[in-house]
Write a protein that binds this DNA or RNA. Structure first.
Lengths: 179, 179
DNA sequence: ACACACATGTAAGGCGTTACATGATTCC
DNA sequence: GGAATCATGTAACGCCTTACATGTGTGT
């Protein structure tokens, strides 16, 4: 089972969903640390069903055909096995950091511009994250992990904005007093 | 020009290098926000040379064949154009956050274990980053952007460790006082 | 003699995105 | 009538990793 398969499995474990609903759920939650497109989701649903990890049933709305998938016992088992494993891959592709890494090759003003643009990007990101509603209130000390992960994203971007501010300040003062 | 092409272009802009040296430079610097393997580097070198952005010359060491690439004026132009553009893609695949997102489906003890494992991973990451030597001392107010980016990685991981600590604490107290 | 670092590449395969194709329903 | 949303899928392509193949030089 691929990791994108695990996302799908997890979402249908929470409640039965159609492919379309899975895509919507991904886009409003895991997208920032695990994205998925239709081009992955539908073929993966097929594979998971063939593997007996999920089961789909027709659930049309009017004449609009629609299939809803629920997790099977075997699927739940596979999902739990993945989930409990405390090992995880991590991969980042950050073109902004890449440009900053090479910014010595740029005139100071252009480098400063890069930092400001990065700050603005974090600000936009933050706004999108803050627009996401946290789940229903704390259920008697329950963990509400999706909210924790949302807080992680928010905190991370706030930290990054602070970093940009520091760098901007350092760069500006170095600019004023060259040599 | 692809973004991995830009990394290669930037590294040979700093100084002429062989494919092997590019791989080593990537592994000890950009790897954490932009990785590259031999399977990308050598074909990309070929493409960049064919496009006239870099020029390779034989530079054998003994009987060991070796080619060193330097950037051409056209290459430098293309690189600068990419570098100055304050737009950048950003993509994260974080399996740890994914597991945390679904951790409501796990017994509390196992969820706690996930947080601890993430903390340990950040700790290891931090150790690797701190092992990287910063470049030569500040050259009269020069920016030393690679060092700034290194500091970014260090600061980010320190922040993440703090987040893990907070979550661990919240989880432990909820565990002691259930309901 | 053996292991490890230096050095250059290719082939196969996995993962993922984008664009396209199709059609129903709802809202203005 | 038109646009947006709901809904399912496929095809082509790009990017990247892994594994392999080959050979030299250095240190023990």
């Amino acid at each position: 089972m691929s990791r994108t398969g695990a996302v799908i499995l997890g979402l249908v474990a929470l409640r039965p969903r159609s492919g379309y609903e899975i895509k919507a759920a991904v886009d409003s939650s895991t997208r920032f640390f695990w994205a998925a497109s239709y081009g992955q989701i539908y073929p993966e649903l097929k594979r998971l069903e063939e593997g007996g990890l999920i089961a789909g049933e027709p659930a049309p709305r009017g004449a609009r055909r629609r299939r809803v998938f629920r997790i099977t016992p075997a699927g739940r088992e596979a999902f739990d096995a993945w989930l409990a494993q405390p090992e995880f891959s991590w991969e980042l592709r950050d073109e902004g950091l890449l440009k900053l890494f090479f910014a010595d090759l740029l005139p100071p003003a252009a480098a400063l511009e890069l930092v400001r643009a990065r700050r603005a990007a974090h600000e936009r990101f933050l706004a999108r994250l803050r627009a996401i509603q946290p789940g229903p209130g704390p259920v008697a000390g329950a963990a509400r992990f999706p909210d924790l992960v949302l807080e992680y994203g928010i905190g991370m971007n706030e930290w990054a904005i602070g970093w940009c501010d520091e760098v901007e300040r350092a760069l500006s003062s170095a600019d004023e007093r060259p040599g």
